[in-house]
Amino acid sequence: MKHAIKILSVLLLTLTMNHSFAQSDDLVNVCALGIGNATYLKDFKVKLPANSPAQKFSVILTKGFVYKFVVCNAEGYEGKAVIQLSEGNNALVSNLKPDGSFAEAVGFSCQKTGMYNIFCSFKNNKEGAAVIIMSYITK
């Protein structure tokens, strides 16, 4: 009986994981459609409950490349993703405009190879799920 419960638990876990994995993968696929004249490099999946601190990702960006960051919010969540590209403590660019609206994409012309951080939170600390696609613009 114990074995049967264990097997059932594994099955349920596998199915749940497959489902959420497929959902976020769908969003990545759809979001990658919106990168326009750019080449996909990497994606970052973010899912945060309400009042969570921003999630941080570190990336090495290379001198001479123009990077493009596109954000797509998952359906069924109130939160809208706010991303901020930073170098150390210096915020460089964000998709949240001063008037409170969102830019569809933000770019970064990299003049110095090094480590940069991408912070992602949700506006007004709401619960949210989103995908960030990092790509570079083909010259």
Partner: peptide, 11 residues
């Protein structure tokens, strides 16, 4: 139409 940051530093 895309907002882009350029640091203009030299490496």
């Amino acid at each position: 139409g895309m907002l882009m940051f350029k640091s203009n530093e030299q490496q």
